[in-house]
Computed example of a mutant assay.
Amino acid sequence: MRSSRRRLPLFPVLLCAAAVLAARPTAADGEPGGDGSGADAGISAQVARLYEDAALATQRYEAGRREAEAQRAEAQRLEALLGRQRQELAVLRGDLGRIARAQYRSGGGLSDAARFVLARDPDELMRGQHVFSRTNQAVDNAIGKSRRAEARLAADEAKATGAKQALERRNAELAVLKKGIEQKLEQARWQLQGQADASVAAGSCRGAVRLGRPSVQLTREWAAPVEGYTLSASFGSGGARWVNRHTGQDFAVPIGTPVRAVGAGRVVRVACGGAFGIEIVLQHADGYYTQYAHLAAVTVDQDENVTPGQWIGQSGTSGNSTGPHLHFEVRVTPEMGSAVDPVPWLTARGVPVG
């Protein structure tokens, strides 16, 4: 009746950053424990500082990511603008070529004195001067327009290049920042798990820690026990780690993921030690009981009333566990041996699992 964890999903969403907060689980069967040693307090303070660093880095990462997306959109806009400007410049250069050729064919290259000598009469001279003037004006206008377009193109190309370089720098910074966040979270999670393992080995937990509870906006009476999970071992499945059959549903999540009460109820058991490691059992108004096992920490005490979706602990891999996950059971009594399949039980209460 012991659970295993088969698959650990990648979980980049940083809601589980709360995993790194130091935890002091409740004593076995609800008996209050001591305050913990000075070494434990030091580890807790270190974990808390790591959490604060990770939270700040997360804010910077999200802000930088949004800025990078804006820069990418601006670079795409500038590239489209440059494409249109290049086309317009090509048309202008073609117009200049046509004007130059037309001017050459019409004698636009002759001086004013030559035009005066070669003109057959005053009318022809005036007509030539008029055509020559108009042609020169057209050439001057075309040259000016072309030069202005070339200047705009050069400026916009420089701007686009600068935006692209800035985007590349930002992406590099974000990659380093993201790696730092992941390293800090991983280190802090395993520090938290180390405290849990020490508690299980001693068979006595140190008391609930009152962490800030994640805001959960529920519109119904029931909720999933964790978010961002991957289902692993299912109810009734066989395995070498269980005496008979698996008695619950395993939700693979990283260490420290907030574990929530699936419904309103009362805490009837908080224990530390044994195959389930750190565990919580809730009693619900309809007579059923739910169990949350292999935790790294708890945030409630025995006999405490809880609400749907309330944060009651943090997932871990304490006890007889092969990796981080939540072992979730539904029982008709608070004790082992009375489990029912939790997936259809949750589904019947409007909480699809999958």
Rank of each mutant, 00 (worst) to 15 (best):
Q165D: 14
Q165M: 11
R169E: 14
N171Y: 07
E173T: 15
V176N: 03
G180L: 01
I181A: 00
Q183P: 04
E186V: 06
E186L: 10
A188Y: 02
A188F: 00
R189C: 00
R189E: 04
Q191L: 13
G194L: 07
G194E: 02
Q195E: 05
A196G: 10
D197E: 15
A198E: 06
V200R: 05
V200G: 03
G203N: 10
C205D: 13
R206D: 14
R206P: 11
A208N: 03
V209R: 06
V209C: 14
R210I: 08
L211S: 07
G212L: 15
P214I: 09
Q217G: 03
L218K: 08
T219I: 12
E221Y: 01
W222V: 04
A223K: 00
A223F: 02
P225G: 08
G228W: 12
Y229Q: 02
A233N: 09
A233K: 10
S234R: 12
S234C: 08
G236T: 11
S237K: 02
S237Q: 13
S237H: 03
G238W: 04
G238H: 08
G239K: 06
G239L: 03
G239A: 05
A240W: 15
R241Y: 15
W242F: 11
W242D: 10
V243Q: 11
N244A: 00
R245D: 02
T247S: 10
G248K: 12
Q249I: 03
A252E: 12
A252I: 10
P254T: 02
I255N: 01
I255R: 02
G256F: 08
T257R: 13
T257D: 14
V259F: 11
A261M: 13
G263H: 15
G263E: 04
A264Y: 06
R266Q: 14
R266K: 08
R266I: 13
V267E: 12
R269H: 09
C272E: 04
G273D: 04
G274H: 03
G274D: 03
G277N: 03
I278E: 10
I280C: 07
Q283G: 06
H284I: 14
A285Q: 07
A285K: 04
A285M: 00
Q291K: 02
Q291V: 10
A293K: 06
A293R: 05
A297N: 05
A297E: 12
A297P: 00
T299W: 13
T299S: 11
T299E: 05
Q302R: 14
D303P: 01
